[in-house]
Design a protein around this nucleic acid. Structure first.
Lengths: 233, 233
DNA sequence: CCCAATTTATGCTTAAAATCATGTTTTAGA
DNA sequence: TCTAAAACATGATTTTAAGCATAAATTGGG
């Protein structure tokens, strides 16, 4: 696979900006154990059961993190955007991955070697404490998500997913179009419903004037109404 | 409320045993900022929205951690047993509690002052890294839980909850009776279903010879069958 | 010990969402 | 550009679980 012109230096700086209280020597250590690679849309970055080789970071593109469910039905756990870490849970828990990561667009993925990172963390308590805070925050998201995915009805879950996507990726320049283009199946897997129901409910939202649909392009016409639907459950 | 004869020293040692790589000076610091109190069955230890004052530890009794759901329906997120921490997610995330904790039996709760603990963590990277691992592991449980609660059917969810309770609290001396006595409503809130359905499904398991029921006493007659039901979804 | 309140139990009805079926549109590759 | 595959759309049907009603059993407090 060709080197699709990755700006390693820029990626490196982006990744480092995610760390707090990183000492010069530690930064140099990371630089020397830092690799980048290019993933085409649809390619798998890691799979459930794989062993983490290091701390994975997305510096360009979009990635979905998903778990295979009971009847082969996937559940999307998280959506990543640049610059951000993925797969760190398994790394810090010292476990294999319990979810898979797939590029939704052409993406650049960088990896900091596992051993080197852990060495740094053992020396830098402040940095470790900061990461602990991030993971604790994410555990909160996960707990909230469990409740909404189990207790809200289909309309509420889909509305919440759309709001979540807007919060994560923002709008296009028109201020209305959500800046991510998911298949109906992905949207369903994010919202814990069948593809049929995602399609149906999107159509309903469109008829109600909440959304305007054009293929995978989703334009939010009435944010308040969407939020109300999400809150109602 | 009377001092129900709390053995503070014993509780203190129990709590300290949960920390790894704790230095003598740090231990002394904790001892001087360590309080214990007694909670009767049913009493609330903290509520959703409260601000954590420190690291809470259960040294005696049983506690449920639950979130209020959409229609006032609670979702039990976690069951705690001694000796173990509760409410640490909010503390480390520097947030208010997103769930409430209630004693299921008479319990002893100890608290390590927040400021003191964070001081220790800032100095002790190894300890912080160890806590990071625990929180990352729990995030994994939470993610798995999200999938099973959303994708498994009622029978599978209830069976899984029963297995989970056995894993957490173990069996009585007879080797069959799960060592925790929950109301049908709590069992339902743990398994994401209505109380009616928890009752109905328990009865079904009993008729199928998987369980033997006697009030809140649940005797597991056929572990394999229970596991099979859980795995089927 | 007794009574009210709560919990448990069970049947029936309704609502929600999955499944199935069919057809159309879009996309990717030869 | 054509074709096959994939994705999207919509209606009908079935399954699942919630909701509701009623009654029995259990529990806790006076």
């Amino acid at each position: 696979m060709a080197q699709h012109n990755i700006d390693v230096q820029n990626s490196f700086e982006g990744v480092c900006s995610l760390f707090h209280n990183l000492q010069p020597g530690e930064k140099e250590l990371i630089r020397r154990n830092f690799t980048c690679s290019y993933y085409r849309k649809g390619e798998i970055i890691y799979k459930e059961g794989d062993k983490p080789s290091g701390l994975v970071c997305l510096t360009k593109g979009k990635v979905k993190i998903f778990k295979e469910g009971v009847g082969g039905r996937d559940q999307i756990m998280r959506m990543a955007k640049p610059v951000g870490f993925i797969g760190y849970r398994a790394l810090f828990a010292d476990e294999n991955y319990i979810a898979s990561a797939q590029a939704l667009e052409d993406s650049v993925i960088c990896v900091i070697d596992r051993t080197v990172l852990l060495e740094i963390l053992k020396m830098n308590a402040e940095l470790t404490l900061h990461i602990l805070r991030s993971v604790a925050t994410e555990l909160g998201f996960s707990n909230n998500r469990t409740v909404t995915l189990t207790q809200k009805h289909i309309r509420g879950r889909l509305a919440e997913s759309l709001i979540f996507l807007r919060d994560t990726y923002g709008f296009e320049d028109d201020g209305q179009t959500i800046k991510v283009y998911l298949s109906r199946e992905d949207l369903a897997n994010l919202s814990n419903m069948t593809t049929s129901n995602a399609i149906r409910t999107l159509s309903a939202f469109s008829e109600e004037g909440v959304l305007e649909l054009d293929g995978r392009r989703i334009k939010v016409l009435d944010v308040h109404k969407l939020e109300r639907i999400s809150d109602l459950g």
